[in-house]
Amino acid sequence: MRTSALDRSQALALLKTYNEEPFHILHSLTVEGVMRWYAQDQGFADEAEYWGQVGLLHDIDFERWPDEHCRKAPELLKAGGAGDDMIYSVCSHAYGLCSDAEPVHQMEKILFAVDELTGLIGAAALMRPSKSVMDMEVSSLKKKFKDKKFAAGCSRDVIREGAERLGWTLDELFQRTIEAMRSCEAGVNAEMAGA
């Protein structure tokens, strides 16, 4: 079983040591919540804390060192008390882009798949009258996915590769990740409001 050497407050403090932009904090909190949901969904409930913290810390170095993404992270994570397993898992989300750490564990494959996708879903939610994922359907997300000009920074190729690594259709990945984002939206919003 994978467990974290950190508690959640330590992980959040570590993230905020190197990240101040609300956009980056929001993304990290969202991926944390999504990963916790997936831990339950995939039968790894006893690892939910670990999955969540990997999600929370996956972009720890991106705000300050975007050109050294996943190369600076190991140093920051180790100094913050993270173990080698967590460091590998964090770096695996950028496999083939700026990391050689291949996603192997189910958690790492999910993180790889949902990192870009949560950004796309978040951008699509902001276009809705509700500004929420609570009323989002897969069909409307698919239209945004096909529109390459919409949220152009979210790599469709990475999302497709992520679904393939999991052996899921895009529709399955979209549906599950929307549900995962629904599960944490209120909590993330409350935490951002209190930040």
Rank of each mutant, 00 (worst) to 15 (best):
C70Y: 10
E102K: 14
E63N: 02
F112E: 12
T169P: 03
C184H: 01
A124Y: 08
L26M: 09
N19G: 08
Q40I: 02
G162H: 12
E68G: 00
R64M: 13
G162E: 04
G119I: 04
A163P: 02
L57F: 03
D61N: 10
Q175Y: 03
L111F: 03
T17S: 15
R128W: 00
R8S: 12
V133G: 00
M127G: 04
G80Y: 01
K144F: 09
I121H: 03
G55C: 11
M35L: 15
L26D: 11
A163H: 09
D135C: 08
L56C: 05
R160D: 02
G187Q: 10
K142S: 14
H27V: 03
V188C: 05
S28Y: 06
R36Q: 15
A73I: 01
L57Y: 00
D157S: 15
E63W: 04
V104T: 13
S99V: 05
Q106C: 10
F150A: 06
F112D: 02
D7S: 09
K143I: 08
S9F: 00
V34L: 09
C154Q: 14
R2N: 10
E161M: 14
E116F: 04
D46I: 06
G153A: 14
D85K: 10
Q175P: 00
S130G: 07
L14G: 02
A39E: 07
T169Y: 06
S92W: 06
K142W: 06
K144C: 13
G162T: 10
E116G: 08
G194N: 15
A152T: 04
T17N: 10
D41K: 12
S28Q: 03
P103V: 07
D59M: 06
D59W: 02
Q53C: 10
I25A: 06
L57G: 02
M1C: 03
A163D: 03
R182V: 03
K142M: 15
G162I: 02
K142C: 12
P66R: 05
G167Y: 07
